[in-house]
Write a protein that binds this DNA or RNA. Sequence first.
DNA 1: TTCAATCGTCTTTTT
DNA 2: GACGATTGAA
Length: 766
Amino acid sequence: MHMTEPAQKLSISARAAPRPSFVDALNEEQRAAVEALDGPVLVLAGAGTGKTRVLTTRIANILASGRARPHQILAVTFTNKAAREMKNRIGKLVGGAVEGMPWLGTFHSIGVKILRRHVELVDLKSGFTILDTDDQIRLLKQLISAENIDEKRWPARQFASHIDGWKNRGLVPEKIPEGEAFAFANGRGRELYAAYQRRLKELNAADFGDLLLECLRLFQDNPGVLSEYHNRFSYLLVDEYQDTNVAQYLWLRLLAQGTGNLCCVGDDDQSIYGWRGAEVDNILRFEKDFPGAQIIRLERNYRSTANILGAASGLIAHNEGRLGKTLHTVGGEGEKVTVQGVWDDEEEARLVGEEIEQLQRQDHALNDIAILVRASFQMRAFEDRFITLGLDYRVIGGPRFYERLEIKDAIAYLDVTLNPANDLKFERIINTPKRGLGSATLQIIHSHARSRSIPMAQAARELIETEELRPKPRKTLSDVLAMFDRWRGQIETLPHTELAELILDDSGYTAMWQKDKSPQAQSRLENLKEMVRFMSEFDSLAGFLEHVSLVMGVDREESEDRVNLMTLHSAKGLEFETVFLPGWEEGLFPHQRHLDEAGQAGLEEERRLAYVGLTRAKTRAKISFTQNRRIHALWQTAIPSRFIDELPEAHVEAIEGQEKFGNYGMNRFDQADGIFSNAYDTPGWKRAKRNAQSEGQPAARRGPLTIDGELVASSTASSSDFEIGERVFHMKFGYGRIAQIDGNKLIIDFDKAGQKRVVDSFVKRH
DNA sequence: TTCAATCGTCTTTTT
DNA sequence: GACGATTGAA
């Protein structure tokens, strides 16, 4: 693709005009991107070149120059985190006036905002609900079985991803290509999709894809509405443009027909959401779709050392489909990127743990360390190890707060209280806690609701007036409905946090977990409390529920110093002094499934993911791979990732295994089949053999005690005030009895989790 | 209707 | 090896 370059020189008058001081801090290209306010602009911003800075300064510049008021700027990001970050940074630049930027947010949140103003035009009613993935699957299941399609053969989950894919491409049922319509349930795909959309309208609900698709349809079908927004927005800004999907692209293009002042910032090398419908092509097509577009490249990297950047650039150069750019470092050489092979994931975790402790001794802040994994299951080994070491860590983007069972249940209660017509939520909690309203009763309610096409709650109300139900469920059902009526009556009078507590207590939901003796019950109760506490930040129940449906997690403000553990995907946009990149093995990274599904394109996307990972590091990047990994509970010999050999020699240091693994990679094909059948005389092999032999005796399962012993000596000296034989409770492992004490480390026989070695501050007396 | 046991499926990434 | 769904017994 042909491009104009470098950025056009500014006119004399522009250069002579007084400019706000914040512009001075920018380099030439950045300044060009900030000051080119008219017409379409594409900023190709490599990793660490000050992308966010350009976006925020640009907005500050628009505001400071008086060209637009805050509410006339539309700025879209992909994540809530990015939106928040942007708000903060603009606030710092222009001094707090960001509160008046109502149109800075994620594509989805802005979509909802627009839809809510024009509900009637998209066939919804005010206060429509947003379905989460769970509800969506439940609904699809019902539809599939109602159509007499074998749910085993055609799983709802799979259909959900089809629908998602269509919506990402802006396709309504009538528009999906023949072939694809036939791909599901022997050609009934389109019919099912249409039925699903109808059902959504009946429920007065929209799923995630609809937030954009319906918005798009709104603009397409109502030119008047569209031009209203043309007048409203004088400037459009888009972050992470490489991640936009077709629907988002079409949406942007419609809006940009207004003033044409569209500025997109992105990096084709960091496009890692192809599986979610992102089209890198959007970035390649920019010039064609927006004639006269200025293209500005930011190639000065302020983040990483030359070695890290060199390694990353060398790697990404193996991709063919890219615009190509050359990043230059501003910083020095720095350390080389290290690559090290280890025996298995436990040893990998042990190695990383040791290195972190060493860094810690050199006063390296834990906050500035990240471990970036390809798939979340890899986190487990690290968590186990860090718990053992007593090393503080946090999981970013891990199990999302609102995806937790107890939170979803609680939210379902709140939702049904506010909106009795929400069938999916109603179904979810009608028998939670167990009240004796099983599938039989539910079935009756369901068919009654369907035949009269009324919400289930109303159907239930009618049914308790009849003889159709047996006396016991009839009584229970009537009680439950009365409960909801009572709560509903208190919405106006009671503060919403108190109402939430009341609902959770009255319904018996809290009691249910209090009775539960499982290890997680305690933390579930705490999560519920956390949720209520969090609710106080909103001024109404409805406001809270809206937030919940759009934002997946609560990012608690955490000031403690902790190691960061996250997936590569959630690391995009972040930076750390030291980055560990474990699990660089064929099959895992690049991930086999992605390769199978998307072939060469998939491989390139995986490579971009590796690039993103490396470029998160400012001073230190440490790659590792294991020789053996357990997949589906059975051991497999792992082959080092091809990405490792693609790294340019000059910037990489291969660390020989401390345990004489020296010639990893060389002998890997010589290894005979079967578990641990390579008879190499290495400590790792012996250890593995020990572990294999002691299967069934949990006592010996945890790695080599000698290594643990050394670490214990180095990391702590204080002794514990627990006693052998005491019953204790641990957040992760549940209840157990102390078997042995070693300094401040306890060896505990857990009822469920077996024997573990744990730091005493992690357990409570029971 | 509920509970316990068993079977089968799957483990990529997310708004 | 973990979870869900399904099955059968109380």
